[in-house]
């Protein structure tokens, strides 16, 4: 495993730890989109259906279990925890899941490497992950007040994807990795969606101002 890939996985893990810290220690999910979190559960469940069938490495299996477990527990906290659920910005988190899920599913049926259940689900998870952050970005845009934890959470999620792009470049040139258009292009789109957020995040950090996205 190369350093970019490890850095990507670690920023991904760190983003989840940060969000769980906000939820468990501060008993708040203010500014967090339940829609996006539910989409991540769907992403992980559909991508990791091969968990019980195919073994890659101990690291790989553990990370998959961690991502599945943490994403499900985050959704549980936001929906059912009696204190946390009251901090959820329900009225502004109105992005409809189906507008993302349906097109991604149709696209996965049409564009995939092999027309098998596992492969279509895997492809669907890549397409859905690419756009799953959209409800969260919409929520941030509508929020007047973005706390540091939420801003850092979204930044780490974007950083994770940027590291994966570097990882693919490294694997292609150094490890003679084959061309893989589906994950590469969806990963590129996923990273591009963060571009605007990155711009305002870095700007607010440089000017030591509170993060605010223009409406």
């Amino acid at each position: 495993m190369n350093a970019f890939r490890l850095a990507g996985d670690m920023t991904h893990l760190l983003s989840i730890i940060l969000l769980l810290h906000k939820i468990r220690a501060m008993k708040s999910c203010a500014g967090i989109s339940l829609r996006t979190q539910e989409l991540y559960v769907i992403v992980f469940v559909t991508r990791y259906v091969d968990l019980s069938m195919k073994y890659y490495s101990f690291y790989n299996s553990i990370m998959k279990i961690v991502f599945l477990g943490t994403s499900i527990s985050i959704v549980w906290y936001m929906r059912y925890h009696k204190v946390v659920k009251q901090t959820y910005n329900k009225d502004v988190d109105t992005f409809r899941h189906i507008f993302l899920i349906l097109p991604c599913f149709v696209l996965a049926l049409l564009i995939n490497r092999a027309f098998t259940v596992i492969e279509v689900l895997w492809t669907f998870s890549l397409y859905l992950e690419a756009v799953a952050i959209l409800p969260q970005l919409v929520l941030l845009q509508r929020s007047r007040n973005i706390d540091n934890l939420t801003g850092n959470y979204v930044f780490l999620l974007g950083a994770y994807r940027a590291f994966y792009l570097l990882n693919w470049i490294y694997r292609f040139f150094i490890e003679n990795h084959q061309v893989r258009w589906i994950p590469w292009l969806s990963g590129l789109l996923q990273t591009a969606i963060y571009a605007d957020f990155f711009y305002y995040y870095i700007k607010s950090w440089k000017n030591r101002e509170k993060l605010k996205l223009p409406a």
Partner: peptide, 10 residues
């Protein structure tokens, strides 16, 4: 192997 390479990612 080459056919499973991206699948070892998360």
């Amino acid at each position: 192997s080459a056919s499973t390479d991206v699948k070892d990612e998360l």
